[in-house]
């Protein structure tokens, strides 16, 4: 069942280790920028909490806490399946790896579906202040700020997840061809880092928006 595992050396690198480390370091550098991108939103959320504590509590109680919690669990499971794909890629078990990758993509899609349902619920409950229509907390102006941050943060995270699932599907298709693990095993490793990090961001988003002092 096991295939040989390795990577193909690119022209401008001198060793495989160098190439592997470079890819990993490059991805970590990218993850730093992702973290700081979301950190700006967390900072906004914190400042709004400081300036309008009561309004934020009011707005937070209108968020769909249980959908958020379920979604966190879904992403934690997807983290597990991604880890599974990585460990199987290391031992060259391609068929198992592919199944885990598809499962990861499915869980990511499930997250997005739940998220879409949550947005729909928000819409039905008039929790979408920027659309022309009633806003249930219209009497409390400052609550809009927090709801705005909620939508921007979750949408930005959603964009990352959509990108992630798309790349994952392409990668799965590539990996389904023979000799993939022989040449490009580190693509799975590097992609896994990205997926884990999107999950990690959500693990911060969930408490920051839904849980803290709701």
């Amino acid at each position: 069942m096991a295939e040989p595992v390795g990577i193909m050396l690119a022209e401008h690198f001198s060793t495989v280790t160098q190439q592997r480390q470079a890819a990993k370091l490059g991805l970590w550098a990218w993850l730093i920028t992702e973290l700081l991108l979301f950190a700006g939103l967390f900072l906004c959320a914190l400042i709004i909490r400081i300036q309008h504590p009561a309004s934020v509590t009011l707005a937070a109680t209108h968020l769909k806490f249980w959908i958020g919690a379920a979604n966190t669990a879904v992403l934690i499971c997807s983290s597990f399946t991604m880890s599974g794909a990585i460990v199987l890629s290391r031992i060259g078990w391609r068929a198992g790896m592919l199944r885990f990758m598809l499962a990861t993509a499915a869980l990511g899609t499930l997250f997005l579906l739940l998220k879409g349902f949550e947005y729909y619920q928000d819409y039905v409950e008039h929790m979408v202040p920027f659309l022309s229509g009633p806003y249930v907390l219209a009497h409390d102006q400052a609550s809009r700020l927090f709801v705005d941050v909620y939508f921007i943060t979750t949408a930005l995270h959603g964009v990352h997840l959509i990108t992630g699932v798309s790349i994952l599907l392409v990668l799965t298709w590539q990996a389904s061809r023979p000799h993939f693990l022989t040449r490009h095993q580190n693509r799975i490793e590097v992609y896994g880092l990205y997926w884990h990090f999107i999950d990690l961001i959500w693990m911060i988003v969930f408490p920051v928006l839904y849980v803290l002092n709701r």
């Binding site: 934690i76 597990f80 460990v87 849980v211 709701r214």
Partner: peptide, 22 residues
């Protein structure tokens, strides 16, 4: 899969604590 599974269990447990508290 031992380590990924243990990680999964730990994360779900911690999430359960947070959800319960929230």
């Amino acid at each position: 899969l031992r380590v990924p599974a243990l990680t999964l269990a730990a994360l779900l447990a911690l999430l359960a604590i947070n959800v319960a508290l929230g």
